[in-house]
């Protein structure tokens, strides 16, 4: 259940004319959808965790590995399930 603005495609609009512009727009749209889906589904959770860890702990606390991180997350969910509505 995490997400962030990290990795969101840049908002700069490159002004070009004709086909390249349309192509660029399409590429940006696809990148936006990919960013949204990955954040929504939770693909970026580990990256967000690393970032959180870096800014809150010194190098003396090594972060969890990706595998450990996901295991811990699932164990947390086991202990504290979230409801799903009808």
């Amino acid at each position: 259940m995490t997400g962030s603005t990290a990795g969101r495609p840049a908002r700069t609009i490159t002004v070009r004319a004709g086909v390249p512009a349309a192509f660029g727009l399409l590429k940006r749209g696809c990148r936006g959808i990919a960013w949204y889906m990955q954040d929504l589904m939770g693909d970026n959770s580990y990256r967000n965790y690393l970032e959180h860890h870096r800014s809150n702990h010194g190098p003396e606390y090594p972060p969890l590995s990706e595998r450990q991180f996901w295991r811990q997350r699932m164990d947390d969910q086991n202990r504290n399930p979230g409801a799903r509505c009808c």
Partner: peptide, 20 residues
Amino acid sequence: GKDFVPTDRRVLFGHHFAAI
């Protein structure tokens, strides 16, 4: 970084919608 995470509003909208 686990239960309490500032989440992009659009992503959270999707999470919330999927849950309700």
